[in-house]
Amino acid sequence: MKKLSIIYSVLVVAACNTAAPKSETTASELLTNQVELDSSQLRMAGIVTGKAQTKDISSTLTVNGVVDVPPQNIVSVSFPLGGYLKSTRLLPGMRVRKGEVIGTIEDQALVQLQQDYLVTKSKLDYLKQDLERQRILNENKVNADKVLQQVTTDVESQQVLLKGFSEKLRLVGLPPEQLTAENLSRSVALRSPINGYVSKVNVNIGKYVNPTDVLFELINPDDMHAALTVFEKDMAKLRIGQRVSMQFVDEPEIEYPGEILIFTRNVDENRSGTVHCHFEKMPDHLMPGMFLNATVFLDKRKALTVPEEAVVRFGNNQYIFRQVKPLTFEMVEVTTEPAGNGLLSINSTALNLEKEELVIANAYSVLGKLKNSAEEE
């Protein structure tokens, strides 16, 4: 029993002895954010200290997007009365001009519509003449007022019918004032309503199309713009009128300037919104859906800046070194943004860096010394 007590005591002492260094290591790790240099090391490494400078900076935001067309520049061509497609020469990609014939529709309903218009017009002419006769007779007390009223009603009814047929003819592209019994036609020409090009052809010759069917889709390229995707965290930085530089994937060396025209006030399921930008000079080769990269030049603002060589990257974070006392420096975590001209804007949630003496040149030399000191300990 005495032997067991001795063995237990030895194990307890051994456990205590092995636990102590672990505590020392943790304490050592807590001190590795500071490093002390002598004056010769400072001079040989070219380490320079100074204060961060407050400057007006214009940062940028890099995003990507696609070429987009506003809904008012996309035209779906249909035929309101239905019929058979007699002819068309359109292919996707072809350019068309406003008023140009892009297809021909024929149907017996077209003949019936023209016939109804001409018959109604003739009947109206007769009723107008009869109305004039009845008015004269009524003034001479030859006929009853009832007869005059009936003829007047018939004239008004025919005028309504004629107006309806007239509007239907205009709807299909047939001017009613030019219609006569000699030029009745069973077909009508479809004309392009815009200058642009063909994006879709949905029918073939001989196919019957309903009034709701889209025969062709045309695009007016005059108002194409860039639709940029911007993440939620960056939306607050944008405003209408900010300058944008855009490059296409197939020619990244060419920049196309533009500006923000409008942007959405909501975000989608990917936590991003859409920003619409127009081109100052429209590229000739634009097509809807083309990918592009863009740089948005944000508004100028006041920021605390240091040279790029003042910031070191270690692990997944960025740091600067502040002087806590002569020849002693402490590593401070910061967030940065490009500020142009070799500068970075810096920010720390832990310290007010504006009044601190910082390493502004060769900060990586300080980091190297810090790492060596930690390894030695």
Results as ranks from 00 to 15, higher is better:
Asp223Val: 12
Lys200Val: 06
Asp222Asn: 06
Glu232Phe: 00
Phe231Cys: 01
Glu182Thr: 13
Tyr197His: 02
Asp213Gly: 09
His225Arg: 08
Leu190His: 03
Val209Trp: 02
Thr212Gln: 13
Asn204Lys: 13
Arg191Thr: 10
Ile194Pro: 03
Ala236Leu: 11
Asp222Ser: 02
Ile194Ala: 03
Asn210Gln: 12
Lys233Gln: 11
Val198Arg: 00
Lys233Arg: 14
Ala181His: 15
Asp222Met: 06
Val230Phe: 04
Met224Gly: 13
Val203Tyr: 04
Asn210Lys: 11
Lys200Asp: 06
Met235Leu: 15
Asn183Arg: 11
Leu228Asn: 12
Lys207Asp: 01
His225Glu: 08
Asp222Ala: 02
Glu182Phe: 12
Val209Cys: 01
His225Cys: 00
Pro193Asn: 14
Leu184Asn: 08
Leu228Cys: 11
Gly206Ala: 13
Ala226Pro: 08
Leu218Cys: 03
Phe216Asn: 07
Val198Thr: 03
Ser199Gly: 10
Lys237Trp: 15
Met224Phe: 13
Thr212Met: 12
Val198Gly: 04
Asp234Phe: 03
Leu228Val: 08
Leu184Glu: 04
Tyr208Gln: 00
Arg191Asn: 08
Lys233Ala: 09
Asn220Ser: 07
Arg191Tyr: 09
Phe216Pro: 06
Lys237Pro: 10
Lys233Ile: 03
Glu217Ala: 10
Asn204Thr: 11
Val188His: 00
Tyr197Gly: 11
Ala226Thr: 05
Ala227Val: 15
Ser192Asp: 03
Lys233Leu: 07
Glu232His: 01
Tyr208Met: 04
Lys237Gly: 13
Thr212Cys: 05
Asp213Pro: 12
Val230Lys: 08
Asp234Arg: 09
Pro221Tyr: 02
Met224His: 07
Lys237Tyr: 12
Ala236Cys: 12
Arg191Ile: 07
Tyr197Leu: 12
Lys207Tyr: 03
Val209Ala: 10
Leu184Tyr: 09
Tyr208Pro: 03
Asp222Trp: 00
Lys237Ser: 15
Ile205Tyr: 13
Ala236Gly: 15
Lys233Tyr: 02
Phe231His: 05
Lys207Met: 12
Glu232Gln: 07
Tyr197Ile: 06
Leu215Glu: 10
Ala236Ser: 14
Val214Met: 12
Leu184Thr: 14
Asp223Leu: 13
Val188Asn: 00
Asn195Val: 11
Val201Cys: 01
Ala226Asp: 06
Lys237His: 12
Asp223Gln: 14
Leu184Ser: 05
